[in-house]
Amino acid sequence: MISIGELPVSDTKPKDNLLEKLKKLITHLESGDDQQALVLLDELSSGRDSYLFLELGKLTRKLHDSLTNFQLDTRLIGLANNDIPDAKERLNYVISMTEQSANRTLGAVEQSIAILDDLQDQAVQVNQNWGRFMRKELSIDEFRELTRGVTRLLETAGAQNLTVRNNLNEVLMAQEFQDLTSQIIRKVIRLVEELEVNMITLIKISGGLDKTPGAGPEASGDLSGPAVPGVSTSKASLSSQDEVDDLLSSLGF
């Protein structure tokens, strides 16, 4: 198949050529050189044919471009109809997975802290009474209370040690979201990239490139949310608590 780009392109010369050939034709006809005149006539009509081919080539290219654009349009429709809603679903899933993980972790940590607090309270109690026992300050009833305290402490320590261990395992397991969420987010990033490329092509086709597409005005009233390293925004963002403190102290805080 011949590519359209290889078709003859000679659009400034034909006019001069044509004039010259017509002048020659007249000269030949006037001088009665019919042979030469016929050759020239042939050349002229074949030249007309190549013009026709050139135009046909241009038309074919237009058709080809339109067909390509049409494909692009259907891809954009696919992106809008399927991929974007799909991506929203995926991101919602990321939110629920991270939330679930945070709650699992917090639950395990809160339970462990309560256990450790309880153990510490018991240990402090036993320790105080032990000190009094060593100083021979305990009555026989208080000594019995001390032995009960020691027994309780040893039992709790043994049993709760296992619970805390399990809770730590729970915290460990709750981190599994990281693998899954990053895979999902990476997929969505690829989708956004594809959308970006398609949109740029669309802008080029619609001839909007003479107006350089700059970043549009930021939607007003929208809070900018967490600062992300490497993502610049139009408004100055402070990246650390120290910078925030400096700003506040400059305001008299």
């Binding site: 900018s224 949310g225 967490p226 600062a227 408004k235 100055a236 925030v244 700003l247 305001l251 805080f253």
Partner: peptide, 13 residues
Amino acid sequence: TAESKKEQIIEAA
């Protein structure tokens, strides 16, 4: 808060 724009901190102040 996660809002860390200069303007926002000034607004809050």
